[in-house]
């Protein structure tokens, strides 16, 4: 039983990465019906920006703000830098293209993804980079025989706070209502006086920012980052988005967490090498029986 609990906690940790990335996919998809393939690379970029701050600027900032302050600054700067990149990518690669259709936008998104990935390679080099090792004291807590590290607790705490904040913003504020309305029916929403441009600004600011924070957390958790890792995480996060029901934000959060837990349980009880196969099989099975995802509502077919 302890193994199960430990795997569930590990799964929730990586699941919260997937969930944070999935939120960006889901928001963009909900409003623009665009699969933003560059989103995984926003995540990587965040990871690298965080790495640079932690490694290069640490001497300076630790003196003034302490270790925790440094981590907070790294996450904040990474989020801001990547959010600005997200806005730039939207402006350059998506805005001129999405009025012409969904499929050209997919190619453009892939182009943006290739561009960002290779820009990262040019700037930081093609080799793996390693996050500093003694960032967070390696403290283990034992709760009823279940091991959990301080880092895991922090990651879970931070991601749940971020998700809760986003949930409140989307569900309870007027601005969130505007985003939801645009996702439901863009034209009618515009007729009701919703500024669609602001909505797009909002989603392309928040989505990449959340992805970047996940990137910094992944760096702290696994310590090793590479410029191609965005593909893998992006793919998993996109899977999580679909699992939860695309365009449905709480669905994306739960989809990510469920995916992480399934992956870890699969690794423990089936085989570590086959865990991804297991995840994709579950996804396919879910979609066969619930074609709109776990939490997706059935949409009537337009004729």
């Amino acid at each position: 039983m302890q193994v199960v609990f430990e795997q569930v906690i590990n799964g929730l940790t990586i699941g919260s990465f997937y969930a944070l990335i999935a939120l960006g996919y889901s928001m963009v998809y909900g409003v623009l019906k665009l699969i933003n393939f560059a989103h995984g690379d926003f995540f990587t970029l965040g990871s690298y920006v965080g790495y640079t701050i932690l490694v290069w600027v640490s001497g300076l900032t630790v003196v003034h703000f302490g270790l925790w302050g440094l981590i907070v600054i790294a996450m904040f700067v990474a989020a801001l830098a990547v959010a600005l990149t997200g806005l730039a990518v939207e402006r350059v690669a998506y805005r001129p293209i999405y009025p012409t259709g969904r499929l050209p936008a997919v190619v453009s998104a892939l182009g943006a993804s290739i561009f960002i990935q290779n820009a990262i390679m040019v700037v930081w080099g093609p080799r793996f980079q390693a996050y500093p090792s003694k960032l967070i004291p390696n403290i283990k807590f034992v709760l009823g025989g279940v091991n959990i590290t301080l880092l895991q607790i922090l990651i879970l705490l931070m991601s749940f706070i971020l998700m809760a904040v986003l949930y409140v913003v989307i569900q309870k504020t007027t601005f969130g209502a505007a985003v939801r309305a645009s996702a439901l029916d863009r034209e009618t929403a515009s007729l009701m006086g919703i500024n669609f441009k602001k909505v797009i600004f909002f989603i392309f600011f928040l989505g990449p920012a959340l992805g970047a924070m996940a990137g910094v957390m992944v760096g702290m958790y696994y310590r090793q980052i590479s410029f191609t890792m965005g593909w893998n995480y992006g793919l998993k996060a996109f899977t999580a988005t679909i699992l939860g029901g695309i365009g449905n934000l709480p669905g994306a959060m739960f989809g990510g967490l469920i995916l992480g837990v399934l992956e870890m349980l699969g690794a423990a009880y089936i085989s570590a090498a086959w865990k991804d196969v297991f995840v994709f099989l579950i996804l396919i099975l879910v979609l066969i029986f619930r074609p709109n995802g776990l939490f997706g509502e059935r949409v009537a077919e337009k004729v």
Binding site: V92, P96, P104, A105, S108, F115, N118, V122
Partner: peptide, 21 residues
């Protein structure tokens, strides 16, 4: 060399801008 994929990605975006069909 290492910049060619940067060019490649940009050209993909440009192509879709000017010939979306």
């Amino acid at each position: 060399a290492m910049y060619r994929m940067l060019v490649f990605g940009s050209v993909m975006i440009l192509m879709m801008m000017f010939r979306p069909q």
